[in-house]
């Protein structure tokens, strides 16, 4: 069976190592191919690369980005990636799972409105929880997505 291609976008190196390690340590590398992007620009380079064929994105919200020439670090970084993916006919098939350190109802609602398929709070997800989610993805079990069908 084809591997599932996952992209993790997060500016925190420790999160990137942690995520990658879960695949490595629990022997999931046979079912998944993991790409990692430390920021907005690198994320787009991978998303627009058709050879990478990303199926699922785990997306951090608060990251540095440039707006009107100014450097900012807000949740707009992740939200704009989310919106753009869902608005693009070539990309909207990609499932987007927000993986954020923030748990405000406000953020969750906004993510849902912008088309997120799921919202995961980092502080609520131990390795064993992420493994369960990866298992569902491998089984192509779409009921794992809270917000989309």
């Amino acid at each position: 069976m084809d591997k599932i291609n996952i992209l993790l976008v997060d500016d925190n190196e420790v999160i990137r190592i942690f995520f990658k390690d879960i695949f490595w340590l629990h022997g999931l590398e046979g079912q998944f191919h993991l790409e990692v992007a430390p920021g907005v620009d690198e994320a787009w380079a991978i998303l627009r690369d058709s050879t990478k064929n990303i199926n699922v994105v785990f997306l951090d919200l608060v990251m540095p980005f440039k707006k009107d020439g100014k450097e900012m670090t807000t949740s707009e970084a992740g939200m704009s990636i989310l919106r753009t993916i869902k608005a693009d006919p070539n990309l909207k098939h990609i499932k987007v799972i927000v993986f954020s350190g923030y748990t405000d109802k406000k953020d969750i609602e906004e993510a849902k409105k912008n088309g997120a398929d799921m919202y995961l709070a980092k502080e609520e997800h131990l390795p064993q929880d992420l493994i369960k989610i990866f298992d569902s993805l491998a089984k192509q079990d779409s009921s794992v997505y809270q917000y989309s069908k």
Binding site: E13, V14, I17, F18, D21, I22, L25, P127
Partner: peptide
């Protein structure tokens, strides 16, 4: 993967979840 070549950060994460 050869953990003897890991950076300090990579070792720290490995010791936590590996």
């Amino acid at each position: 993967r050869d953990i003897a070549q890991f950076s300090k950060r990579e070792l720290a994460v490995f010791r936590q979840i590996g």
